[in-house]
C-alpha cells in the first residue's frame, strides 16, 4: 500500500473517531454549529478520504512509469482536504456563536480548500478510469 494511501486511511480513521466523539456531545445537546462539523467529518473526512486513498492505490495504472499518476496532485488533495476540514472545524462553531471577520474569512478559505481537494483528486484520477 503506497504511503499516500496509508496517510489518507489513517487520517480518515482519526476523522471517524473525532466525528463519533462529537456525536456524543451532540447527544448531550451541545450544538453551537457543531452539527455540520460532525456530518462533514464523517462524510468528507472519513468516507470520502477513505475512498480517495483506496482509489489512489487500486484503480488501473496511469502508465508503467507513473502508475498512480501525479504524486504531487495526490498530496495536494490530501493537504487541501484536511486543512480545509480543520479550518472548518475551528471556524464554523465560532462563526455560529460569535460571528467575526476572522472566522468568516477562514470559512471562505476552508471552502476553497475543500473544493481544491476534489478538483486535484479528479484531475489525478480521471485518466485512470478507463476500459481495459
Amino acid at each position: 500500500m503506497p504511503l499516500l494511501t496509508r496517510v489518507f486511511i489513517k487520517t480518515g480513521m482519526i476523522c471517524l473517531a473525532l466525528a463519533l466523539a462529537l456525536g456524543v456531545l451532540l447527544a448531550f445537546g451541545v450544538t453551537n454549529g457543531l452539527f455540520p462539523v460532525y456530518i462533514h467529518l464523517l462524510v468528507f473526512g472519513w468516507l470520502t478520504q477513505l475512498i480517495f486513498g483506496v482509489i489512489f492505490w487500486m484503480f488501473p495504472k496511469y502508465s508503467a512509469e507513473r502508475p498512480r499518476g501525479s504524486e504531487t496532485l495526490g498530496w495536494l488533495t490530501y493537504v487541501s482536504l484536511n486543512l480545509g476540514l480543520l479550518l472548518r472545524a475551528i471556524a464554523e462553531p465560532l462563526q455560529s456563536t460569535q460571528p467575526n471577520s476572522f472566522s468568516g474569512w477562514t470559512l471562505v478559505v476552508s471552502a476553497l480548500l475543500q473544493f481544491l481537494a476534489g478538483l486535484a483528486f479528479v484531475l489525478n484520477s480521471w485518466k485512470r478510469v478507463r476500459e481495459r
Partner: peptide
C-alpha cells in the same frame, strides 16, 4: 460520480463561503 463530486463540492463551497462572508 467524479463530476457529481465536483459539482457537489462547488455548491457546498458556495454555501460555506456564504456562511462566512
Amino acid at each position: 460520480s467524479f463530476l457529481y463530486l465536483l459539482a457537489g463540492l462547488f455548491f457546498g463551497g458556495l454555501m460555506l463561503a456564504q456562511k462566512g462572508i
